[in-house]
Design a protein around this nucleic acid. Sequence first.
DNA 1: CTGACTGCAAAATGTTTGCAGATTC
DNA 2: GAATCTGCAAACATTTTGCAGTCAG
Lengths: 162, 162
Amino acid sequence: MNMGKKEKPAKITRLAETQFRTGMKEHGLRCTSERIAVLQEIYRSDTHLDADELFVKLKNRGVGISRATVYHTLDLLLKFHLVSRTDLGHKHTHYEKAYGVENHLHMVCNDCGKVLEISDRSLSDILENLCSKNGFEPESFTLQLFGKCSGHSSGEPSKYKN
Amino acid sequence: MNMGKKEKPAKITRLAETQFRTGMKEHGLRCTSERIAVLQEIYRSDTHLDADELFVKLKNRGVGISRATVYHTLDLLLKFHLVSRTDLGHKHTHYEKAYGVENHLHMVCNDCGKVLEISDRSLSDILENLCSKNGFEPESFTLQLFGKCSGHSSGEPSKYKN
DNA sequence: CTGACTGCAAAATGTTTGCAGATTC
DNA sequence: GAATCTGCAAACATTTTGCAGTCAG
C-alpha cells in the first residue's frame, strides 16, 4: 500500500496507465480502449465518482461504453490497486484514483453531505505500524468519519441523513 | 464520538437500551418490541451482522419481524449512534454495536475474507486531533484495511476477491 | 485466428416504499 | 383515541450475468 507518496500530478496518470498495461499483460488480460478510457476518466477527476457518473461522463465525452464494462473495469482497476472503493454512506459505492495518491480520509457531514478529504502523515505511520504488528500486509485502506462539518457543528442534532 | 471508552460488557446492552429509550422518547418515537429485539440482537453479537443475518437470527429466536422493520430499525439505531455501519467490501452493509464499544478498525483479508478487529488508542487520538483541527465534530467512524492476513502474506497475488 | 472483451438485456441483490391493519403511548 | 409502527408485497437502484458478436494480440 502506498502510505503517502508524492508525485507530480501530471505524471501520475501516465504512470498508472503503464502500471495497468504491465499488470494486464502479466495476467494475460487485454488493454482495450474502454478500459483505458475508464482509467483516464478516473485519474482526470479529483473526487469520488460512482459507476454511473463514470458511465455518463464517458458517454458525454463520446466514449461508447456500457455500464457492464464500466463495472467490470472498475473491478479490474481495484485488483491492480489503481483505484480505491469508498462507501460514503450514500446508496452507491464511490471510486477514486489510488496510484501515486497520498492516502486520505473522508470527513462526511451528516447535515450537508459535504465530504472533506484530509491527508495525514502520522495516520499513515500508525496504520503501517498496526499492520506490521498484526502480520497484516495492507494493500489499500478506506477511512470515513461521519459527523458535522464546521458549518453544522451546533448543538442541534443531525438531520439524520447518516 | 466515543473514541475508546471501556465498560463492563454485561452492562452495555442495558445502557444502550436506556439510551435508546430516552432518545426515542425525546423524538416522539416509540419503543416497540421489534426495535428492542433488534437492539438486543446486535448487542448480543460480537461481530458485524448484515441486515439479513439479523432478520434470520431474530426469526430463529422466535421474534416475528419483517425485513422492512429490521432495515428501518437499523436506520434509527444508526441515528442514535447505537450501531455503526461498515462496508467490508462484501455486497451487503454490515452493522455492529457502537455504544460503550472501543473504536476499532477492520483488517480484511483479500484472500480468505477473514476480518481482524484492532483497537488502538493512538489512532483514536490522531483522529480526534484531525477532526478538531478541521472544525469537524465526529459522530462515528469506520476504517477498513484491505490486504493479506498473516496466513496469506506470501509473494503471491491476491485471489482478487477484494 | 483465437480467446478475451463488449454490449445488451435480463436477472439477481440489497434496500426502500406505500398502504392497511396492529400497537404504543 | 391518535399517531406511529409493522408487515407485506411491490417498487427501486445498483450491480452481476449469459450470450452472441467483436476485437486485441
